[in-house]
């Protein structure tokens, strides 16, 4: 299985390549990708240099252009695809069907991957994307069990990539409007979930209070690990209870299930975290590379090193092993 690694900056890109990535995915410094955070991402020149660096080491570069085009502004997304193709991207990762149509029409030789943001989670959806846009790979939403993936793999003529480690999204990828509801900006249209411009962390006594726009997201007592300020990870009062209404602030880690994923027909494992620093990228990629080649008995000790880097400093197998309420 390939190891697909994130990079938000050229320095992180080099770290991912040197640490053992088979492919690095990244995006342009604008709203065409779902990690459009301040100070992050690549200029065209930076991407050209990064691709050359990767190619010299037999590593592929995937360019995420995985937000949805805005009516009247399609040129920004078209240009991103044109530039990624011209710069030699090994694949573009797309979510918008209109952009997929543009890509297959203008750049028929460009390899096209379906972003998790397209939310293609059943055989009919994937088959349509393969037939209509010659998609070569689909990144599955984090909603399926390993058994679901195995069943799906038998019904489609397309490679499967799944998330193996990193931040978890609420189970409606590409369709989540929580951030948009609170701030007017969303990962789907603007490339930002919980934009930093709307985030505030406020000390209140020994507690840490996180706020997004006009909403209080969470209150962390002293000693409790903090999480991202997203509504999906918010702790709310519901009836008589206070708790996480959508999901807990934990990170995904399915490295205990590598053999099962391989047997299910998965071609590539993806690490989430283009918004994270190069230290995270270097550590996670090198540990994951070692974990992929290690035996099942050595693997837990290797991967446990990564808990400290995780949101909430806790990990979960998420939907892959569906046991929640």
């Amino acid at each position: 299985m390939e190891l697909i690694c994130p990079a938000g900056t050229p320095a992180a890109f080099r770290e991912a390549v040197d640490a053992g990535a088979d492919a690095v995915y990244c995006g342009f410094r604008d709203e065409t990708n779902a990690r459009n955070f301040p100070g992050l991402n690549f200029s065209r020149d930076e991407l050209r240099t990064a691709i050359a660096y990767a190619r010299g080491r037999k590593v592929m570069t995937f360019v995420a252009i995985n937000t949805f085009m805005r009516a009247g502004q399609e040129g920004l997304w078209h240009q991103a695809v044109d530039d990624a193709a011209a710069l030699g991207a090994d694949a573009v990762i797309l979510a918008d069907f209109g952009l997929m149509a543009y890509t297959v029409e203008r750049h028929p030789k460009q390899r096209l991957h379906v972003s998790v943001q397209a939310s293609a989670s059943n055989a009919d959806a994937v088959r349509f994307l393969v037939e209509a846009f010659a998609a070569k790979r689909v990144v599955l939403p984090r909603t399926l069990t390993i058994a679901d993936i195995a069943r799906l793999a038998k019904q489609i003529d397309c490679e499967i990539e799944v998330f193996a480690f990193g931040g978890l999204c609420v189970m409606a990828e590409g369709r989540c409007s929580l951030s948009s509801y609170a701030t007017g900006k969303s990962p789907n249209m603007n490339g930002v979930c919980s934009p930093a411009s709307h985030v505030r962390y406020r000390p209140d006594g020994r507690d840490l209070v996180s706020e997004l726009g006009d909403y209080t997201i969470n209150r962390f007592p002293a000693g409790e690990a903090a999480g991202y300020p997203t509504l999906c990870k918010g702790r709310f009062d519901i009836a008589e209870e206070r708790g996480y209404a959508f999901e807990d602030p934990v990170s995904l880690d399915v490295m205990d299930h590598i053999e099962a994923l391989r047997a299910a027909g998965v071609s590539a494992l993806k690490i989430e975290g283009r918004q994270r620093g190069k230290a995270y990228v270097a550590e996670v990629v090198s540990v994951m590379r070692r974990a992929l080649t290690a035996g099942a008995t050595e693997r837990p000790a290797l991967v446990s090193r990564l808990k400290a880097l995780s949101e909430g400093q806790k990990t979960t197998t998420g939907a892959y092993e569906k046991r929640w309420r």
């Binding site: 301040p38 100070g39 962390y201 840490l208 918004q275 995270y280 880097l309």
Partner: peptide
Amino acid sequence: GRIDGDAVFFSRDLTVSGDMEAMLALRN
């Protein structure tokens, strides 16, 4: 850049206040 900013923030070893967008841009 020897440690991950998010990780030390999660662990509460680091406190950030004020303009988060500006601080995030500087961190990156």
